[in-house]
């Protein structure tokens, strides 16, 4: 009977060894050190449970209990420690992509290393790699061959090496899309706005996030530009070549800014087309500065008359620059004015 009990308990130990080794990296290293013979129950007949134990069993530990925070694993997992040294914001991952945490815990750093090398070979800064993993940790799930194919696709489409690096750093999700997806997305922009090859490349380089942005929202913004604002097809093409980010802005805000520019300030469509970046300006900022100019009687937006004020110079620059150079007044006066709004 005693023999059976001893045999059972040793079996149990070896079982916990196996399962816990799957859990933690550090534990696995230790089990690797052990020779196979130690794993097997050694001479259970000669030993009694009451005899003092000489061998080291400190590696036999319980599982980590369920935790609320990745910090519980930080001192045990080599991957997490390496990620911290790299500068990956694990807290961000935990808050925003919570399903990535179990995935990261199962990773072996040796495999991750290959990915990191791949990204640096593409020409991305090591700081940007950390940012890339922070934003899109599941990129480590993609196989290296797939990533290579996706990079080759961009090269085939005659993107330069710098623009490829820029695209991947600015849009961490780009490489998670298959080549077919990216191809249809690029094709969508080419077809909708009737762009040439270099123009598509220019947009992808200027605003890499736009390409993978939700296409329904892009279509909605095109509708806003075309039907609600009244720009022609050719105008829209001009706008997105100069400022592709407009297509990613929120449709209500975009319309409000346009309405203020067109109805209150009185800019024509042609004037807005000359500097489409004005459409990305917040309505509040536009309102504050325009109303101050009205108060100072300097709201003259006709380029053919004296004392012309350019809208771009009006909204860009700090408040002190604006109040002294554009409004020909002082910051104190502008601040006092802001306290009446």
């Amino acid at each position: 009977m005693l023999k059976r009990i001893i045999h059972f308990s040793t079996l149990k130990i070896s079982k916990t060894l196996c399962t816990s080794s799957q859990l933690s990296n550090s534990l696995e290293n230790r089990t690797n050190d052990l020779t196979p013979s130690t794993l097997e129950p050694t001479e259970p007949e000669s030993k009694s449970v009451l005899e003092p134990l000489n061998e080291d069993i400190s590696h036999v530990t319980t599982y980590l209990k369920p935790t609320y925070n990745i910090a519980a694993y930080a001192n045990r997992s080599e991957t997490i420690q390496e990620f911290i040294k790299l500068g990956v914001d694990l807290n961000h991952i935990e808050r925003k992509v919570s399903n990535a945490v179990p995935f990261i815990l199962r990773l072996h750093f040796e495999e991750v290393k290959k990915h990191l090398l791949f990204f640096t070979n593409v020409g991305i800064n090591i700081d940007d790699v950390a940012h890339l993993i922070t934003k899109n940790p599941f990129i480590l799930k993609e196989s290296l061959e797939d990533l290579d194919v996706r990079i080759n696709y961009l090269k085939f489409k005659r993107f330069t090496d710098e623009s490829i690096a820029r695209i991947i750093t600015k849009n961490p999700f780009w490489l998670s899309y298959s080549t077919q997806d990216i191809d249809t997305k690029l094709g969508f922009f080419q077809a909708t706005f009737e762009l040439s090859g270099p123009q598509v490349r220019q947009i992808a380089d200027q605003a890499p996030r736009l390409i993978t942005h939700n296409q329904e929202k892009v279509k909605l913004n095109v509708f806003v530009l075309k039907e609600e604002m009244g720009f022609s097809k050719y105008d829209i093409q001009n706008i997105i070549l100069k400022k592709p980010k407009i297509l990613m802005s929120e449709q209500k805000k975009l319309l409000k800014t346009f309405e203020y520019l067109h109805k209150v300030i009185g800019l024509s469509h042609q004037q807005i087309l000359e500097c489409p970046q004005i459409l990305t300006c917040r309505e509040n900022r536009l309102k504050e500065r325009h109303q101050f100019l009205v108060k100072m009687k300097r709201d003259q937006f006709n380029p053919k008359e004296p004392n012309f004020v350019n809208v771009i110079t009006m909204v860009s620059g700090t408040d002190s620059e604006f109040s002294t150079e554009v409004a020909k007044s002082s910051v104190e006066e502008y601040n006092l004015f802001l306290k009446t709004l």
Partner: peptide, 11 residues
């Protein structure tokens, strides 16, 4: 202590 690093427990 890695468990007390700002990147792990947040700012």
């Amino acid at each position: 202590n890695f468990a007390d690093h700002p990147l792990v427990v947040g700012p």
